Amino acid sequence: MPRFLITKGCRPRNVYLTHAKCLVAIEAWIAVRLERSWGVCGGAEYRGLRPDSKLVLTHKGQSFELAFKHRELESGPEVYRACDALQQTISRLYRQAGIKQGSSHSGRRSLAARVLAATGDVETVQTILGRQCLDHSKPYLTVDPETVRQAFELAL
């Protein structure tokens, strides 16, 4: 099963790592993988890792198993595959990086807010978030009250 089939909306997703502590944690994890020869190819390309290997593995160096999830929707029952263990591992990476309350969405919100503040371009935020519809980007956009105050001053 292609990896993107387990994402929300079954679309490929990009992950932009910007937090310095996350980068340090990822670097340490890559060093562990290279030391233990988990998913390595020996070449310099892809930092010595096989491009088809997953970044996050179990403590035994294997891929996480995808468990079936059952949801009861208004339209009827739905069964899909998801990976709770992977989400727990990502949460653990956040904690190890010193980010007390973190999730993929809090990181997306922070990134969206920072890009919006830096560029003022909502379409750029939409592209980074991988959203097809601008309305779907709005929940990730928070505007700093100071930015709102400055905008009013400029307008008046």
Rank of each mutant, 00 (worst) to 15 (best):
R3A: 14
I6N: 03
T7I: 06
T7F: 10
G9C: 06
C10Y: 07
N14F: 01
V15Q: 04
Y16H: 07
Y16N: 01
I26K: 03
E27C: 12
W29A: 13
R36V: 00
G39D: 03
G39F: 04
V40I: 11
G43Y: 04
G48P: 02
G48Q: 02
P51T: 05
S53E: 13
K54Q: 09
H59E: 14
K60L: 15
E65K: 12
F68V: 15
H70E: 11
R71T: 10
L73Y: 06
L73N: 12
P77N: 05
V79A: 09
V79W: 07
V79N: 08
Y80S: 08
Y80G: 01
C83R: 04
L86T: 02
Q87A: 14
T89G: 05
S91T: 08
L93V: 13
Q96Y: 10
A97H: 01
A97V: 06
K100M: 06
K100D: 07
H105D: 10
A112F: 11
A112C: 12
A112S: 14
R114D: 10
R114M: 10
R114F: 05
L116V: 05
G120F: 06
D121K: 04
D121S: 02
V122F: 07
T124R: 08
Q126I: 08
L129T: 00
G130L: 03
L134S: 00
L134Q: 03
S137E: 02
P145I: 03
E146G: 11
V148F: 02
R149T: 05
A151R: 08
A151S: 10
E153K: 12
E153C: 09
L154C: 06
